Computed example of a mutant assay.
Amino acid sequence: MNYDYERLMRAKRDVKLISACSLTIDQAIQVAVSRIGGSVYDVKLKEVDHRVVWRIKLFAAGRRVKVYVDGVSGNVLGAKAEIFTIEPSKEAVLDAGFSRTSEDFVFDPLQSPL
């Protein structure tokens, strides 16, 4: 029974947020992509500091970026970028022209197959 009550409360909250928002999801995405660029992978309507805000997550220039767009005015309120890297395996690093010296990987362009 508690689960049904929680679902009802989430649905009421979502309806309240959507009713207070004058910016559609498509318009919010357009604002974020035009300002930051990249590809959208997640969108959520939230309440932040008593404001209706679209949070759009993008992949842009090797980073994950969260863009916050005001749900009423359409202004970008802020953006946060997170750099992510994929650690290559030792074999992939050596095949790419890196040689291992002590604990560091050093790039040797003369050994690089590129």
Results as ranks from 00 to 15, higher is better:
residue 3 Y to T: 15
residue 5 Y to F: 09
residue 5 Y to T: 12
residue 6 E to A: 13
residue 8 L to Y: 13
residue 11 A to Y: 09
residue 11 A to S: 15
residue 12 K to H: 13
residue 16 K to P: 05
residue 17 L to P: 14
residue 18 I to N: 09
residue 18 I to E: 13
residue 19 S to R: 15
residue 25 I to A: 04
residue 25 I to Y: 04
residue 25 I to K: 15
residue 28 A to Y: 01
residue 31 V to F: 00
residue 33 V to E: 00
residue 35 R to T: 11
residue 38 G to Y: 02
residue 39 S to M: 01
residue 42 D to H: 12
residue 44 K to F: 02
residue 45 L to Q: 04
residue 46 K to D: 10
residue 47 E to K: 13
residue 48 V to Q: 14
residue 49 D to F: 03
residue 49 D to C: 01
residue 53 V to N: 00
residue 53 V to C: 03
residue 53 V to K: 06
residue 57 K to Q: 05
residue 57 K to A: 07
residue 58 L to P: 08
residue 58 L to W: 04
residue 58 L to T: 06
residue 60 A to C: 12
residue 61 A to I: 06
residue 62 G to I: 07
residue 65 V to E: 04
residue 65 V to A: 01
residue 68 Y to K: 05
residue 68 Y to N: 07
residue 72 V to I: 14
residue 73 S to T: 15
residue 73 S to D: 08
residue 76 V to W: 01
residue 81 A to G: 14
residue 82 E to Y: 12
residue 85 T to Y: 11
residue 86 I to Q: 14
residue 90 K to G: 06
residue 91 E to V: 12
residue 91 E to F: 09
residue 92 A to C: 02
residue 92 A to Y: 04
residue 93 V to T: 12
residue 94 L to Q: 14
residue 96 A to I: 07
residue 97 G to P: 11
residue 97 G to I: 06
residue 99 S to C: 06
residue 100 R to Y: 11
residue 103 E to D: 14
residue 103 E to H: 08
residue 104 D to C: 02
residue 104 D to Q: 09
residue 105 F to I: 10
residue 105 F to C: 09
residue 105 F to W: 14
residue 108 D to M: 04
residue 111 Q to P: 02
